[in-house]
Design a protein around this nucleic acid. Structure first.
Length: 500
RNA sequence: GGCCCUAUCGUCUAACGGUUAGGACAUAGCGUUCUCAACGCUAGAAUCCGGGUUCGAUUCCCGGUGGGGUCACCA
């Protein structure tokens, strides 16, 4: 028995930046396609000409590319916007004649009818219904016109739309792969506009026609579409087409509002997250867990592993709150796993932004520094200010140099003898382990207290309350030709400042 | 408001009628430690409410309540 090839799609509107909640839907479609050796298609639904935002098509395609969600058909990014696939065009505004043809077919089948109602009448109708506490629905007013009347009105150039003719009092049922059986009365379904007066289709006509023509087998989309699924089913039935399998996904909610994550909430676009230093791998891993989980205790999954374990029957039905804390955790996990060269490459933009001219330093120096910070980073964007002290002499808060309740004099004295000790230590011995053992010997022989030496030393090197340890920092500096001098200079400067 | 969906720690979630209700994030404490991070240990923290069904309900059914969604010539 031949299995029908799985074909799924995502169909965003180019009305702005691709946003993070929406990505989860893309991800699940992609994972489902890959898991089933199917095809993953991107289609652009630009039938609302008023809401178009220039550049959003590029943003969508580019964002998907950066996240590693690769499409098989439709527009894609490869050093520029390209397109592929033999069931195109994949941009709805280029398919207008197709929709007209199918709208005509519905007209011929009496499944749809012309409507000449003005906006004013529709608004008034809705108001009346509201006052009378009736559900707001079109009242089929224009259904009464004879064919001759309709022809005359069209000939007169009256503005018109085409509406779906929904018959009352029957039940529309479908089985959702996530939500199970769903029943909705046709009385709840409005005589939806299918073709607008500007000749463009509405979403409902376009999505059904295209999903059929593009041989989509599974419609996987966010659950806010459940209420309009009956309209689509009615259309499939009117055309006599086979229904796809419907799969609705639970919503992703905002932590602050508890409502659907929306574009109005600030930085929610993929681009924003990438710019803040979230790794695509972390974003994908986190998003995969918003509404799905593998039923095991493993939490870290690469895209490849996700493909292997993903299945729609493990998708939840209840909404998930988007929690940045958890995302941050995933991100720090992925930062730790990065190869050092890759960490360098990915941190570079942030280092440049802080004004650090990495080109002026040995690669080994930068790499050692990044190695020190990688375990402390939640987001790559933090890297700049965290490592600035390596490139710029720190300024000191005298109070900070003092370890707990130690006497100021003691600290000064320790910094001074530390200076002499480091001076006498050969530059080639400025290696982490040697530094540690030599410094310990020094502390012991001078009968000093560890904290009273290491704390001021570390602060002298960094100017910071929190940082990696002094041995590691000195080890990194030792890579520079004047590393030892820089270290000693900082120690002496710190002592000076305390002395004042 | 009508209709639809939904309900386990603060958050993501596990437990397909019988568990001391498990894990992770976050939080707190302790240990390690010059600080931070990491790591280890520990703690607190949940089955919305009310009815059924059943020997037994987090789990199945009904009702309520809460939350979300949707009712456009937007998608």
């Amino acid at each position: 028995m031949d299995k029908i090839e799985v074909r799924v799609r995502n169909a965003p509107s180019p009305t702005g930046l691709l946003h993070i909640g929406g990505i989860r839907t893309f991800l699940y479609n992609f994972l489902f396609a890959r898991k089933n050796n199917g095809k993953y298609i991107l289609r652009i639904e630009d039938t609302d000409q008023e809401r178009l935002v220039p550049g959003s098509l590029e943003n969508i395609v580019q964002s998907l590319h950066e996240l590693g969600i690769n499409t098989d058909e439709g527009p894609y990014w490869d050093n520029g916007l390209k397109s592929r696939g033999d069931k195109g065009p994949y941009i709805q505004s280029q398919r207008l004649d197709i929709y007209k043809k199918y709208a005509q077919e519905l007209l011929d089948k009496k499944a749809a009818y012309y409507c000449f109602c003005t906006k004013e009448r529709l608004v008034q109708l809705r108001q009346e219904q509201q006052v009378n506490k009736l559900p707001p629905k079109y009242d089929k007013f224009c259904l009464k016109f004879s064919e001759a009347e309709v022809a005359q009105k069209i000939k007169n150039g009256e503005s018109h739309v085409i509406r779906l003719n929904v018959h009352p009092d029957h039940l529309i049922e479908f089985i959702d792969l996530v939500y199970g059986p769903i029943k909705i009365s046709s009385n709840e379904v409005d005589d939806q506009v299918l073709l607008k007066s500007d000749g463009f289709p509405t979403y409902h006509l376009a999505v059904v026609v295209d999903d059929h023509l593009m041989e989509i087998t599974h419609v996987i989309r966010s659950n806010e579409w459940i209420p309009s699924t009956p309209k689509h089913i009615l259309l499939y039935q009117a055309f006599g087409w086979k229904l796809p399998t419907f799969v609705h996904l639970p919503p992703i909610l905002s932590k602050t509002t508890g409502k659907k994550l929306s574009k109005r909430e600030g930085d929610v676009s993929v681009q924003d997250f990438l710019e803040k230093g979230y790794l695509p791998e972390a974003l994908i891993n986190f998003l995969a867990f918003q509404g799905w989980n593998p039923k095991t205790e493993q939490e870290i999954f690469s895209m490849l592993e996700l493909v292997q374990v993903f299945s729609l029957d493990k998708v939840n039905r209840s909404g998930a709150i988007f929690d940045l804390d958890k995302l941050d955790w995933f991100n720090s996990m992925y930062i730790r796993r990065l190869k050092i060269e890759e960490l360098f490459a990915r941190c570079l933009p942030y280092l440049i932004k802080t004004g650090i001219e990495t080109g002026k330093y040995p690669k080994e120096f930068i790499e050692k520094i990044l190695e020190l910070e990688r375990g402390r980073l939640r987001k790559l964007s933090e890297i700049g200010e965290r490592v600035e002290y390596f490139f710029k002499e720190p300024t000191y808060d005298p109070q900070l140099l003092i370890w707990k309740k130690t006497e100021k004099q003691t600290i000064i004295k320790n910094l001074e003898s530390l200076q002499t000790f480091l001076q006498t230590l050969p530059a080639k011995k400025f290696k982490r382990d040697i530094l540690e053992s030599e410094t310990k010997k020094f502390i012991e022989s001078e009968k000093l207290k560890t904290g009273e030496v290491l704390w001021p030393l570390r602060v002298a090197l960094t100017g910071l309350e929190a940082s990696p340890g002094p041995y590691e920092i000195m080890d990194a500096f030792s890579v520079l030709p004047d590393g030892k001098e820089q270290i000693i200079k900082r120690v002496s400067k710190a002592a000076e400042i305390l002395f004042k």
